[in-house]
């Protein structure tokens, strides 16, 4: 999911900070932020994840007129495939597998701030397999996303590891 344009915006940072329960005025008060070491409203450490909002094809966002696998009249829309699952499965209950987030790493070269317009380049890293005790065979895939600013300088390198499970993780 390459992202052409990810504008770092004040209200987005405010909502993101609220969702994680962070009332630090750095994330919603530009006058306060001007007097801090960063000197401006900056992105919280995990904010690059919210670049999904600016990926036009992001698969975990429902889109008008397109099938969506969440519940409506039925518990799931069978015509929509569940990401990470075999689409031709007959047994609804076997829909327990799927992609889960196993690891995430961020390297900060510069913390993005309000007013930056980022773009991201994405590449696939390593892949590996493992037999899981609680969810069957596990397939791991690493995705490396580099976020550059408007001057083409690297701000954040994000490395995510997704795991595809055979079935719901046993509790």
């Amino acid at each position: 999911m390459a992202i052409d344009k990810f504008p770092v915006e004040a209200s987005h940072i405010m909502m993101f900070a609220r969702s994680m329960g962070d009332e630090n005025p750095l994330y919603h008060d530009s006058e306060y932020a001007a007097g801090t070491e960063p000197g401006a409203i900056i992105a919280p450490p995990t904010f690059m994840q919210a670049s999904a909002q600016f990926d036009p094809n992001y698969f975990l966002r429902p889109k008008p007129g397109k099938p969506w696998f969440g519940s409506g009249k039925e518990a799931t829309t069978r015509t929509a495939s569940i990401p990470g699952n075999d689409a031709d499965t007959d047994d609804k209950k076997s829909g327990g597998g799927g992609i889960l987030h196993a690891e995430q790493r961020f390297e900060y070269h510069r913390h993005p701030q309000v007013g930056d317009t980022l773009h991201a380049k994405v590449r696939t890293g390593k892949t590996w397999e493992k037999e899981g005790k609680r969810s069957g065979k596990l397939r791991f895939t690493e995705t490396i996303t580099e976020y550059f600013d408007q001057n083409n300088e690297l701000c954040v390198t994000a490395t995510g590891v997704g795991v595809t499970t055979e079935r719901a993780v046993d509790q």
Binding site: F16, L26, E37, E103, F106, Y108, H111
Partner: peptide
């Protein structure tokens, strides 16, 4: 979301080390 737990954990870190001070942050869920 695992990333919500990471975001909340990040708040613990920024409250401790100061704003804009992190150079790396990596986790396993």
């Amino acid at each position: 979301h695992g990333m919500l737990t990471m975001a909340m954990t990040g708040k613990m870190l920024t409250d401790y080390v100061g704003d804009g001070r992190l150079t790396q942050f990596g986790v396993r869920f």
